[in-house]
Design a binder for these strands. Structure first.
Length: 424
RNA sequence: GUGAGUGUAGCUCAGCUGGUAGAGCGCAGGAUUGUGGCUCCUGUGGCCGAGGGUUCGAUCCCCUUCACUCACCCCA
């Protein structure tokens, strides 16, 4: 084979897709519980949307976007994240004019041109939520709780930590940034070479550095919560009260920083130690100025993204099971095979999945019935044809019964039901 | 963009100081001519990532290149 998948873009094979579907279904179920509705924007947007939305000095925009000129001469970009896309759609369709509050989710692929490694790909998938028009802290708390619920529904809560922080607003953050720059400048010789560069371009990032000496150097750096303005401080305290009320355990992480420019006030990450260096399963926060920046009404919002690859990677074994149906095996005669076809159509007509491998030897058919994990095998042979019956073999116990053809559907339904009951 | 590691069967991997490949799993068939799993037997399967060099001879040594993986960076 010469042609391989594009670097960083993965096939999700049938065995894995079962789990992916499970994860998506859990997310949709929980979104519905929280009153969120789905919005599906396109994968391709005008490049300027991301330049304005994400910030043109961020890494994502500077070096990670799949940008090209289309045949009409427009610069377009495969979306690197969903927030800007959803907000664009909200503004374009005047959604907030009909209802001042919008709770939206979207699930799908994102694209960033990065070097792939564990938990990081060029096409990756996010479960994304945006909540617009509610600027109060309790909306933050509830949104964080929802993110945690989704992650926990797949991972079970073990080894997960919800980390929260406040980045302040456009009034109080500049003061903090200045204080931090001054602090770092005084300790420049203790920092790694990357951090020396960052202390100018993006001083907040230094707080997040993983180099031990840097970690030590910033131990007693000025912290955000010390310089937050009264409004931000109150907001943050109330978010935490809300999380307490919702029963979400969290840790304050004053070094938690986000890579996209638009965040204000509340930010959070859900991290898992077992993910290696890309430890965040989910991340997000509040963006009070973004909607206005993109030409929408001056209201705030809060959102998050959950990394599906990372979620799937951490999911326990055997979480999602294949749907159960039956397998139809026929003896090697033309008549038996035709009868098998008729039976399968009748089964499917009654909503029962029916698989087969009619061209193969009878033994091979039975083997496939077993490997496919079907609980029931329907057997059609000369004997059954002659007597107007079919044989039903319970593949789990090995017991077999012969029933009148007319009773096939009802018998199978009851066997499948019984199997479900035993599992539950 | 930077660094390190790894490329051998569909998958996971062995292959000694250079002599043109092996196992397990899988798949197919049989033992069991109408019955899966367990067991046993048989079979299928490879331009040893690609190109060049050294050598009588290279999966093995050298160079180049590509791919993958991990880490940095950044993020979900």
């Amino acid at each position: 084979m010469d042609i391989r998948a594009v670097r960083g873009m993965n096939d999700i094979l049938p065995e894995e897709a079962v789990l992916w579907r499970f994860v998506e279904e859990e997310a949709r179920r929980i979104f519905a519980l929280y009153g969120f509705e789905e919005l599906r924007p396109p994968l391709l947007e005008r490049t300027e949307l991301f330049l304005r939305g994400i910030g043109d000095e961020t890494d994502v925009v500077e070096k990670q976007m799949y940008t090209f000129t289309d045949k009409g001469g427009d610069s377009v970009t495969l979306r690197p994240e969903a927030t800007a896309c959803v907000l664009r759609a909200v503004i374009e369709h005047g959604i907030l004019n009909k209802d001042p509050v919008a709770k939206l989710y979207t699930i799908g692929p994102m694209f960033r041109y990065e070097r792939p490694q564990k938990g990081r790909f060029r096409q990756f998938h996010q479960i994304n939520a945006e909540r617009l028009g509610e600027d109060g802290p309790l909306a933050d708390a509830e949104t964080l709780a929802m993110a945690y619920d989704i992650v926990r529904s797949v991972l079970g809560g073990e080894g997960l930590v919800m980390e929260v922080n406040s980045l302040g607003c456009k009034q109080c953050r500049p003061a903090f940034t200045e204080a931090l720059k001054a602090f770092l400048a005084a300790r420049e010789d203790l920092l790694c070479s990357d951090c020396r560069r960052r202390m100018v371009s993006n001083p907040l990032r230094v707080l997040d550095c993983k180099v031990p000496t840097c970690k030590e150097a910033v131990m007693d750096a000025p912290t955000l919560d010390a310089t937050l303005c009264g409004g931000c401080r109150e907001h943050h305290e109330c978010v935490k009260e809300g999380l307490d009320a919702l029963g979400v355990r969290y840790e304050q992480n004053v070094h938690l920083v986000r890579g996209l420019d638009y965040y204000t006030r509340t930010t959070f990450e859900i991290v898992s130690a077992s993910l290696g260096s890309n430890s965040a399963v989910a991340g997000g926060g509040r963006y009070d100025d973004l909607l206005g920046l993109l030409g929408g009404p001056p209201v705030g919002g809060i959102g998050f993204a959950i990394g599906m690859e990372r979620l799937v990677m951490l999911a326990p074994e055997g979480l999602a099971k294949k749907g159960e149906g039956c397998f139809v095996a026929a003896q090697n005669t033309h008549e038996a095979r035709l009868e098998a076809l008729r039976l399968m159509m009748e089964l499917r007509g009654n909503g029962i999945p029916a698989d087969s491998a009619l061209g193969r030897s009878f033994k091979a058919q039975m083997r496939r019935a077993d490997k496919g994990g079907h609980p029931v095998c329907v057997i059609v042979g000369e004997e059954e044809l002659r007597t107007g019956t079919v044989s039903l073999r319970d593949m789990r116990t090995g017991s077999q019964e012969t029933v009148p053809r007319a009773d096939l559907v009802s018998r199978i339904l009851s066997v499948l039901d019984k199997g479900k009951g035993e599992k539950a």
